[in-house]
Nucleic acid binder design. Structure first.
Lengths: 359, 359
DNA sequence: GAAAGTATGGCAAACGTTTGATGTCCGAGC
DNA sequence: GCTCGGACATCAAACGTTTGCCATACTTTC
């Protein structure tokens, strides 16, 4: 299997090139060692092009490459191909335990297609979202998945999509954009929560609402209110806030300070807010579920560990993540035919924080 | 401010080029619109090189670039410069709530230096770690920060470092490598936990240990055992497991099944394991802290919300993240002088899950 | 007013890959 | 014996930046 030595155009004596202090092997080095032209190496190492090179040459090149420890430079490859094999994943809050399973299943699915995820966090700040979008676009990511979209971000997102960058929404939708989205059916989720409370006999309820410019919370509020009205119970208004523990505390305090008579049940728009409400109640000596029932949303990891264990609406987190990744892959394969949006069914998880009202 | 039109070498009629279905503006396009050479545009837009171009030209170019919406292609820039402005951040478990503040402060600090973080998760699996390392290296990240290092990964990490890729350890150290690391002082942390239990009067204790090949857990175990022995209390052995809720449950069950008499206090190597222990105790009708005290580690978000609120050792999460980022930046600036490792002081946070033993 | 700087902008060669176009070699078919 | 076609390998031109080196033109200095 002796091969004629190649005379590569500018090859020096050194087997490789040092750059920015680090040793970098190039196709040229492998080609030199294997005695073939570097374009042959490129083809031999690319599964899609492997047919264009003789099987024995290919085996030889592969073994040489492995021996030398060659690794293709994805930056150069990205420049040439116009594809970086990277998907930007933009989330609102990394501290929200609900995101972990979403991100994990998403990353796993993307990895199956040879894609890597570039995760960043907006901290639910639109300015930050803008910065991040510019950043990842200038990094030429192949697509963007965001779980941080607010309704007000519609025009920004549409413009990006119009630039030809595949964009998929997950968890939070922005219906006006008609972008492919994979979410939980939040209207149904709100309704589930309401029906559970109604069936227990609650007549006075309130919501701790998430931001009014995020689809999930709007939908939850809508589904809930609608069902509550249909059940002819009374709903107290207490306003909206960020979906964080702190805001849950603030809203719950305000509710307890202003609503008379007190509602007998609370629907918190996510588990963090529900935990905030529970903390306030404990502090004020109000018992849950005896005096006030609390129901959360997301079934985040560990909310079954708190006292009382939280009744909550479960979103299929893994499925949302996997599905969003799936849709992204589909969009990359045929950009002309965006996959249809999916909205997955939530389920009710009854634990200890909801019960029949006292009176 | 009229400028002579440039005759760019190969400029077509089109103001820009479409690629992979997306419109991409290049330096050439901006140069054409501004009537200068594209190398001038490059310099005008690079703050470091801006001195080499006339102030008015620069202003003009900048305004044209802004008007056109030009964004530098970081892929091409990365190829040419050999720097991608990207730092790989490798964590073991995204679901560990402790990581969120670490990652956030790290990302914020990196952003200050114009760097972006590429986050991935090993799920505490060494094979996966290898895959991820190869991935990010072939993406030519400028440096790697990992919080997922196991003691057995030493040689892999050293080899990467020897390839000239700046590598910083955070949270978990691998002392044999002498790589720059930013961790919590886990020996001190273990000691704090032990001394707290001793001071309450506990004489029979046990640890729910994390993996024996992770520095943090080895150190915690060591600091704890040493102090316990010095206090001449008795320690039960129950083995080690992954630092997850599930393993906490498994170990706690085993402990309760085998240890006689039962220990009066448990030191769980992280909060998730502590939560697992609490769950087992609730299930078995063992009260905390009355019958058994439990102390955790990390002071993860929300462990003050569980019942009973968890006594724990607090690691300065934000500081670890920020400091690790800081060290990385320093390492990038002067690769010859790696910054010294730092180990930050943990503090004890006493809540409700520890108390004086019954007898 | 010539020589010697000093700004400023243009030129062109990289960076490492991918890939269409172009060989070259060989066997088969007439 | 010549052509044709197939199988491989090589050539060379991109991809969009950055940047050392020149070529101007404009200032300054004696």
């Amino acid at each position: 299997m002796a091969r004629p030595p190649s005379r590569s155009s500018t090859a020096g004596e050194l087997p490789s090139r040092a750059r920015a202090g680090r040793v970098i092997l190039t196709l040229e080095d492998v080609a030199h060692a294997a005695g073939v032209h570097y374009s042959t190496v490129s083809r031999a190492l690319d599964p899609a092009k492997a047919a264009r090179v003789n099987a024995s040459t290919r085996a030889h090149v592969e073994s040489v490459a492995r021996r030398l420890g060659y690794q293709r430079d994805m930056v150069a490859s990205g420049l040439r191909r116009g594809r970086t094999q990277t998907i930007a994943v933009i989330v609102a809050d990394l501290g929200n335990p609900f995101m972990a399973p979403v991100l994990r299943s998403m990353a796993n699915r993307l990895e199956e297609s040879g894609l890597m995820s570039l995760i960043s966090e907006t901290q639910d700040d639109s300015a930050r979202l803008h910065r991040i979008l510019n950043h990842v676009i200038s990094r030429r990511v192949d697509a963007i998945i965001t779980t941080a979209a607010r309704l007000g971000d519609g025009s920004t997102l549409l413009e990006i999509s119009r630039q030809g960058i595949p964009l998929v929404l997950a968890v939070r939708n922005v219906p006006s954009t008609r972008l492919p989205a994979c979410t939980d059916d939040d209207v149904a989720g709100g309704r589930l929560a309401a029906q559970h409370l109604l069936s227990l006999g609650h007549q006075r309820v309130a919501q701790l609402r998430g931001p009014a410019d995020v689809s999930s919370f709007v939908d939850r509020a809508w589904g809930f209110s609608e069902a509550i009205t249909a059940g002819s119970a009374r709903e107290f208004e207490v306003g909206a806030g960020s979906p964080t523990l702190e805001e849950g505390i603030r809203l719950m305090n305000r509710l307890l300070d202003t609503a008379r008579p007190l509602p007998s049940a609370i629907f918190a728009h996510n588990d963090l807010m529900a935990l905030g409400a529970l903390a306030v109640m404990r502090e004020r000596g109000i018992s849950c579920p005896e005096q006030i029932s609390v129901i959360g949303y997301n079934d985040s990891p560990q909310v079954d560990r708190v006292q009382p264990a939280l009744t909550t609406v479960r979103q299929p987190a893994e499925e949302i993540g996997r599905m969003a990744a799936e849709m992204t892959v589909a969009l990359l394969e045929s950009p002309r035919h965006p996959p249809p949006s999916r909205s997955l069914r939530p389920t009710l998880v009854v634990r200890e924080s909801t019960a029949v009202p006292l009176h």
